[in-house]
Design a protein around this nucleic acid. Sequence first.
RNA 1: GUCCGAAUAGUGUAGUGGCCUAUCAUGAAGCCCUGUCGAGGCUUCGACCCGGGUUCGAAUCCCGGUUCGGGCGCCA
Length: 442
Amino acid sequence: MSLNLRTHYTSQIDPEAMNGAEVTLAGWVYEVRDLGGICFVVLRDREGRAQVTLVKKRTDPELLENARKLVRESVITVTATVKAEAKAPGGYELIPKEIRLLNEAESPLPMDTTGKVEAELDTRLDSRFMDLRRDRTTAIFKIRHETLQAVRKYLSDNGFIDVTSPKVVATATEGGTSLFPITYFDREAFLNQSPQLFKQILMSGGLDRVFEIGPIFRAEEHDTRKHLNEATSIDIEASFCDHFDVMSILENMIAYVYAHVKEHAARSLEALGIDLQVPAVPFPKITYDEALEIVNAHGEETLKWGDDLSTLSEHTIGAHVFKEMGVSHYFIIDWPTDIKPFYAMPYEDRSEFSKSFDMMHRTMELSSGAQRIHIHDMLKKRIESQGLDPEGFDFYLKAFRYGMPPHAGWGVGCERLVMTMLGVENIRDVVLFPRDRRRLSP
RNA sequence: GUCCGAAUAGUGUAGUGGCCUAUCAUGAAGCCCUGUCGAGGCUUCGACCCGGGUUCGAAUCCCGGUUCGGGCGCCA
């Protein structure tokens, strides 16, 4: 016996073609409107809503009585006849034969699902299961799905192999961020901050082009709208490429993702009231030095060569680029070697600059990448000069001693990609169960 | 970590020392209503974050705590 209770989603009912057909829908009670002589029950499923109409004179009294008593957000199935009806939302209504109550919801609900009363993000996250029943929230996660589908499609079509690297690691942080320590049997281990080291090792393995979409962990006590302690990273690494090659892959992928979402998530975009504009490629490239000039010319703060860009300066540059060139996405290239990770390749003729880049949205950084150092001794030296212990990197450095091709890559924050695409202001909005400095549950 | 702000029914809010027996919406319970689509009408229910203090009197002012929001910092 099967528990396949549903014959159709609400969106699969064609009023004309299916007029008179019997269907069974499964979902939640969105609303009951009892007008006395006529009663409407609105069923909601993932794809939309359907109106069940019960006319007093023509409905079995017990069926009507049970329908009137339905508690909002309870789970029901409705077996009914489809009736094309211009007066009904969606152009059809359902004349029920049977309404089965599968699971009654408690009352009152922890939050409103109809959009009449907005709930704060914190309230919504505490009751995420209920929040997901709202159109807007469902739309965000459908778009996130289409985003990742597009990323996989684009990268696969361009010769990238989907890989999975370990999230539990012994040591060897890339520096900078701190890691979450965990217990691995009787040893100390950590949750990995990024697949960086492993995807590089795969270049030595000859996989040539790889990508990974997976979780990354950062034990930083940041407290902003654009940081998470557990995030999703979209990473690539490609052999026989320099930074310009992978920038090209990145910008084309972003444009592809936007176009894909526009086409495949049109209803979700509409639910969010978004008219998505696909960014034009190539994205403009400005150098780090030019970025500094922009910041210093605007006078709100003064940066000197070698400084990293502050939040304020990112906004200054983003606003400037948007005003001058009318684009939201751009690259900042040629960063000082010393403020980029040890594996970024310096230019041969000016080693204080590296073959590195950040890909920016006008509101925040979306990606960073570089051509990597593929020369063992140079890499080891860079590790040492950044104050790290090369011994912890043995497993990584070993891969550079037996034939490592030149390579380049980048990582994009999936959440930031989605939030900038949708104009969502808080990164937690695009994560089902966000992990931030304070939130560990649900 | 730091600066600023907030905390009132299930949810979202009004409120600036007495007019608060606390506003409104939504919701819930009940009743009326045959085309609702944020249905409408009537009745009822439901709240001042915790601890101290000031005051004749505190939702309101002060102190501490907790939690939340925003800015910055930290952050390949």
